[in-house]
Design a binder for these strands. Structure first.
Length: 432
RNA sequence: UCCGGAAUAGCUCAGCAGGUAGAGCGGUCGGCUGUUAACCGAUUGGUCGCAGGUUCGAGUCCUGCUUCCGGAGCCA
């Protein structure tokens, strides 16, 4: 039997006999011809069974295969008769490795979201999900490559934590040898410790939010990358985030263009993602909202609609800085020019995709940080180790967090983050 | 938690003013030598989400519940 090859190797085996293994994606037949669309995890190839070219047994075997049967096919690689540059296989031999015990639930026609999510383990086999998750994998790799190539050290943050990192969101509670523990919602505080040890660090892993959020932008479990850099200020933090986002987008455009095109993504939006990003202050965002006839009171946080209006004013991601300090988490440093403002920044993705980055400069003064913990009604003893970072060689530092799924959602141009995760965990879904 | 919407065949849906349930797809059988969500013919398929109520009669009207969807708040 000829060597088994994958579909991206077909061009190297033109006019040769090969064996491929995969699953039957679709079948069309026409009397003496059967077209088997077979997926092998890499791609899809058309296998043509022509009655005069195979035994009667092979022909009826091909005719009897149901969707998602696993198959081994041996045949001749040739150019597709209708589509130049594509390859097909003229079948000579066929083995059915497994026949589905029931009809495959996902037909080529339309399905509802709930049904598809119930069948997420099978839905992953579809071309659309394949394209999205290939892009997700590319973005994950681009994230690692960017930081690894810029002098950062990967420091894995713990998943199980004793207390809230930020104290605002609800946490998933679990039992830890008769004590309470919580699933992390951010690795940031640990990254601050690591930044003092390694200078430039990042963590990249799953985080958890138990909020009762039920929107297109929320998951209960999502991946976040959080760089933290010693001796930089807010401006340099924004420079980093900007350079980083441009790098990710250009990598996907370079490596996953065919997937983006399959998803019918308008690439011009992504090609416009170049430095510099517009930078506005929270106060200016409020003005934009007023002019747009969507007045938001100064001091209020920007809602989802507000973010969309603001981001629609620009053709690329927009950086919004200097929010009122009361709105932000306890660890942000105040602006020395106006103590009511935080040295923070959010980056809003274009086209209404909302906040993909949140970050800023951290409070590095022991007394001020201690007071802030107090003002936020947080237990100071839980943050004793964190305050130590301000006791022993305190240093200005800044960082940010970027949500992987929201970034994938934006780059792919999807309507909902649930398709960006292989097995999304949401308010109403823990399975499969 | 709040506001809005939905639940009918395996899937996606239709079912008007209450009168005993329908299409497409899928499955099955048959036809076709180039199909691309193939096509053509036949066929299979239902506790109308659950529990009450109104009525001679409820998929349809009313009440409660459940589940899901969209959004708000919160956030990445």
């Amino acid at each position: 039997m000829p060597k088994r090859i994958f579909f991206d190797q077909l061009r190297d085996h033109l006019d040769e006999q090969v064996t491929i293994k995969g699953w039957l994606y679709a079948k069309r037949s026409s009397g003496k011809l059967i077209f088997l669309q077979i997926r092998d995890g890499v791609g899809i190839v058309q296998c043509v069974v022509f009655k005069p070219e195979v035994t009667a047994e092979i022909f009826s075997l091909a005719d009897s295969c149901a969707q998602e049967s696993s198959l081994s096919v041996t045949g001749l690689v040739r150019e597709h008769q209708r589509h130049k540059g594509e390859y097909e296989i003229g079948v000579l031999d066929l083995t059915v490795l497994h026949r589905p015990v029931h009809d495959y639930p996902i037909s080529p026609k339309e399905h509802g979201v709930d049904f598809l999510m119930d069948n997420r383990h099978l839905w992953l086999r579809s071309l659309r999900q394949h394209a999205i998750l290939k892009i997700r994998a590319e973005i994950s790799k681009a994230i690692r490559d960017y930081f690894d190539n810029h002098g950062f050290t990967l420091i894995d943050a713990p998943i199980l934590t004793p207390n809230a990192c930020e104290g605002t969101s609800t946490l998933f509670e679990t039992d830890y040898h008769d004590k309470k523990a919580y699933l992390t919602q951010s690795g940031q505080l640990y990254m601050e410790a690591a930044a003092a040890a390694f200078g430039k660090v990042y963590c990249f892993g799953p985080t958890f939010r138990a909020e009762k959020s039920k929107t297109r932008r929320h998951l209960a479990e999502f991946w976040m990358v959080e760089p933290e850099v010693s001796f930089i200020d807010l401006e340099q933090d924004i420079d980093l985030a900007e350079d980083f986002i441009v790098a990710i987008v250009s990598r996907v455009l370079e490596k996953r263009k065919s997937e983006l095109e399959f998803l019918e993504r308008d690439l011009s939006y992504l090609e416009r993602v170049q430095k510099p990003f517009p930078r506005i202050r929270y106060g200016q965002a409020i003005q934009i909202l007023e002019q747009a006839g969507q007045p938001t009171e100064y001091g209020q946080d920007l809602g989802g609609d507000d973010e969309t209006i603001v981001s629609n004013h620009f053709d690329r991601p927009v950086v919004v800085t200097h929010y009122p300090i009361e709105q932000k988490a306890f660890y942000f440093k105040r602006d020395s020019a106006d103590e009511s403002l935080a040295l923070n920044m959010d980056i809003l993705a274009p086209e209404g995709y909302g906040e993909i980055v949140g970050g800023g400069q951290r409070e590095d003064d022991l007394a001020r940080l201690s007071r802030s913990i107090d003002q936020h009604h947080l237990p100071e003893d839980a943050f004793a180790w964190y305050l130590d970072l301000r006791r022993y060689g305190s240093f200005p530092h800044a960082g940010f967090g970027l949500g992987l799924e929201r970034t994938v959602c934006w780059i792919c141009g999807l309507k909902h983050v649930r398709e960006t995760s292989p097995f999304p965990r949401m308010l109403t879904r823990l399975t499969p």
